[in-house]
Write a protein that binds this DNA or RNA. Structure first.
Length: 442
RNA sequence: GCGGGCGUAGCUUAGCCCGGUUUAAAGCGUCAGUUUGUCGAACUGAAGAUCGUGGGUCCAAAUCCCAUCGCCCGCGCCA
């Protein structure tokens, strides 16, 4: 007999079914036992006799029996299957369980996160984590469908890539075949997506892991996921409109109210004293705010040079700008309830302008050729004007689920110092492994 | 790298300021038992803690001091 999900039993009144899942709770009345069976779809009350006496919470069982309507007045409005129950004819224990370190049925907000992270596979059984991960799936699916409907194609870019020390700290991977040389894990697929535009893709997107070796925060992990996109022949307004349409669609999907605001960088600083203003007026509102007209550069007092405000590929509004101090960029940052959840820009697409920027931020021509030669060369073969944006999926989900930590929307997050309490990572590796990589042991 | 908070049975906490009625308390869970209609049941009973770890002060330390470890929050950092 095919296995039925708990919720499916609603439509199987009077029929024999086979259900499988975890023992959520047991209410024993001696000769009659009520067992709430939990599976991915929800709970189902099963009725057993004394044969169920040995059952314990979190055991995995297979129950075969008949679905019956509950007696009058015995329905439970709290659960979806509350109008029916399973009268068990056969009980099979598929897997036993030790007493779990915390109660799966308890409110996990009251349980120490350290314990939850060590036993994450048990924490994932809780209603809270299940809900969050399902919502995450729905939002990501909506994003994929939306991008597809708007003519974008999803393309994967390499994980083993090139270190570009200008940005955040890179995670680096030693090369076995090339002793002394290293790959870097991508902080973002930035250069690849620009090269895809040169490649004539025109509309690219990717749901992609990005990695930055910086200290985590409640809203930040070393490893996170972005909806990354890039498009050719667009103005900034096209990118903003598309993003607004996407976010409105997501808000509608989950029934949340949305407001949109736009501020220039100067206005944001003047009115709100921050470039990440929180414009939320009530608890349920998703207050999005574009920050526009950013300065192209930022004066680095210590090094006495101009640093890019965002990154070196951001296009200036006036390609013939003379004064780095007043030059504005085509940068757009997206802020949600006071948190940056995305950023992007129109990009530079000519070699001349890109070289001018390298020079201004103090990267010598020799070095820029070595580090960015591939991009400069590509720009000489018909690079279309292009731009894009990357949206932080984890942070967005944090707001959609009303969680106060990004970890609550990730299946296997790391701690504040980048460790996994469950897998005990990072960990030491064999000397032999290091020797193959030509890495000296510390 | 820096600052702040927390650490007491499996879980959640009380006790800590102001050391001595503490044999470290409670709820949940666990274990044993009762119970044929319960609603993450109810009732009766039991077990379970070198108070994160190490050192110090004191007649006496969960409580005061020092060090150390772990987790959380923030700053720096995050092209």
């Amino acid at each position: 007999m095919q296995r039925s999900l708990n919720v499916e039993t609603l439509k199987k009144l009077g029929k024999r079914v086979r259900v499988c899942g975890w023992v959520n709770s047991i209410r024993s009345h001696g000769k009659i036992l009520f067992v709430d069976l939990r599976d991915r779809s929800g709970l189902l009350q099963a009725i057993l006799g004394t044969e169920g006496r040995e059952l314990k919470p979190e055991w995995v069982v297979e129950l075969t029996g008949t679905i019956k309507k509950r007696p009058k007045g015995m329905a439970n409005a709290e659960i979806e299957t509350g109008k029916v129950e399973l009268v068990v004819e056969n009980l099979k224990v598929l897997s036993k369980s030790k007493t779990p370190p915390f109660e799966i049925t308890a409110d996990s907000r009251k349980i120490n996160e350290e314990t939850r992270l060590k036993y994450r596979y048990l924490d994932l059984r809780t209603e809270r984590m299940k809900k969050n991960l399902i919502l995450r799936h729905k939002v990501v699916k909506f994003m994929r469908d939306f991008m597809d409907e708007n003519g974008f194609i999803e393309i994967e870019t390499p994980l083993l890539t090139k270190s570009t020390p200008e940005g955040a700290r890179d995670f680096i991977v030693p090369s076995r075949l090339h002793p002394g040389k290293f790959y870097a894990l991508p902080q973002s697929p930035q250069q690849y997506k620009q090269l895809l535009m040169v490649g004539g893709v025109e509309k690219y997107f990717q749901i992609v892991k990005c990695l930055r070796d910086e200290d985590p925060r409640a809203d930040r992990q070393a490893e996170f996921t972005q909806l990354d996109m890039e498009m050719s022949f667009v103005e900034q307004e096209d990118i903003l409109k598309l993003t607004e349409k996407l976010m409105n669609g997501i808000a509608k999907l989950i029934g949340r109210k949305v407001t949109w605001h736009r501020l220039t960088y100067a206005q944001a600083l003047k009115k709100h004293k921050t470039d990440k203003p929180d414009l939320q007026r009530n608890k349920d509102e998703l207050a999005f705010c574009w920050i526009l007209d950013w300065p192209l550069f930022d004066w680095n007092k210590e090094e006495k040079r101009w640093d890019p405000m965002h990154h070196i590929f951001t296009a200036p509004q006036d390609p013939n700008f003379k004064d780095p101090k007043t030059a504005k960029s085509w940068q757009h940052d997206l802020v949600l309830n006071g948190y940056e959840i995305g950023g992007g820009s129109l990009r530079i697409h000519t070699r001349e302008l890109q070289e001018k920027i390298f020079e201004l931020v103090g990267i010598p021509a020799k070095e820029s050729k070595k580090k960015f030669g591939h991009l400069l060369r590509a720009f000489e073969y018909g690079a279309p004007p292009h731009g894009g944006i990357a949206l932080g999926i984890d942070r967005l989900l944090m707001f959609l689920t009303n969680e106060s930590s990004i970890r609550e929307v990730m299946a296997f997050p790391k701690t504040g110092d980048g460790r996994s309490l469950m897998m005990d990572t990072p960990s030491k590796v064999d000397k032999a492994q290091l020797k193959e990589l030509h890495v000296k042991t510390v």
